[in-house]
Computed example of a mutant assay.
Amino acid sequence: MNKVAKEIDEYKRGKTKEEIAEKYGLNPNEIVSLASNENSYGPPPKAIQAIKENAGRVYRYPSPKDAERIRREIAQKTKLKPENVVLGTGSDGIMESLMKMYIEPGDQVIIPTPTFSYYTLLTKIYKAKPKHIQRNQNYSLPKNISNEINQDTKIIFICSPNNPTGNTVTTEKLKQILKQDILVVLDEAYIEFADQTHAPLVKQHDNLVVLRTFSKAYGLAGLRIGYALTNPKITNKYKAVSPPFPLAIPSIEAAIAALNDKEHHKKTIKNNQRERKRLQKEIPLKTYPSKGNYVFIDTSPIKATKITKKLMKKGVIVRDCTPIPGCKDTHIRITVGTPKENTKTIQAIKKITKK
């Protein structure tokens, strides 16, 4: 085992219903799981049907035609071309291939914090140096962030909407960063819930990669389907370093079906926007504006670890953000659930904060 593997910590995922049910003696069917930003309304019916119809094909590897079909569907959705699309086992799989392409040991990776902690973990795995830049008080990117870039900087990760804070990056700020001679990885995992995308900029900037996923708005987290939008120069080399079969046949068919299940997608976005506003209004704690399917909250004066534990005992799982660089020990994140799940969550928080 190498030195890096010995020293890094495992990615801290959200707790599952099964774990909390066993720990606190609860009925798993009555537990609300709002820690991992999954789609609380489930997968599209058309995607489920596609999985069933293609289950018998799993003894074969996906063909080049299968991959080309999903790239064409994604290109049509994003108003780009198939040569602008690459595929991966979740967006984290795409990030790993990008690290193979751009990072040498000792290189620097800029990570504005707080943000998705996997960027830091991946940087360390590839023996690069993460440089954490604290975001502004409202969690926007610092005005002088470009000044932090030096000859060792190879990549900057920008999440928009940012996880866990929910805010987006402005076009002006992004274009300022794109002027630098580094790879800009823009993670738009939650973009379907927002009202702005920067994907069209890949036509003008050959150092931009826009990450997307089917895990959030499309409700297919368990299938691990990711894609990225970028220029053909990057896509060609990406194919050389990425695994030969990044997506399984059922995943490809489910993703295509999900893109075409517009009724379910529209319902998901509409319900999320309504329930997100409700959580922000009714939770008796400080909440921040959000464009994602989650709400970032300051639990002061109660510590985040304490309130998340009390919520778990009541059958409500939320994310304690304390371990995330740049977060305070009073920050939590709550996924927007169904009306019933949100009601239970709001009531539980009100009971805890009254004591």
Rank of each mutant, 00 (worst) to 15 (best):
G106C: 13
T330W: 08
E22T: 13
I110M: 03
S63T: 15
N236W: 04
V86H: 00
K267A: 12
T170H: 10
E263F: 08
N293K: 12
I249W: 06
K129W: 11
G14Q: 07
T16F: 13
D187N: 10
P164C: 06
G93I: 10
S91I: 00
T171H: 13
K355Q: 15
A228G: 12
A348W: 01
P243T: 02
K267Y: 15
Y218L: 14
D92H: 14
A75R: 07
L87H: 11
N272M: 11
Y288I: 06
P200V: 14
E18D: 12
D320K: 02
I51L: 12
I74R: 04
L279G: 10
R135C: 01
R72A: 12
R13A: 14
I94Q: 07
R274P: 00
V241I: 15
K131D: 04
K350G: 09
E172Y: 10
T268M: 01
T113H: 02
K267Q: 15
K131Q: 09
G106S: 05
G315M: 07
I48F: 04
T168I: 15
L220F: 03
I297W: 07
K262Y: 00
V32F: 03
R276I: 14
G219L: 06
R276A: 08
G56D: 14
Y190W: 14
E73R: 02
A50P: 06
Y294E: 02
P130D: 12
D107P: 08
L208Y: 00
T335F: 07
V58Q: 13
E263R: 12
Q151G: 11
K355L: 07
Q347E: 15
I324E: 09
V318H: 04
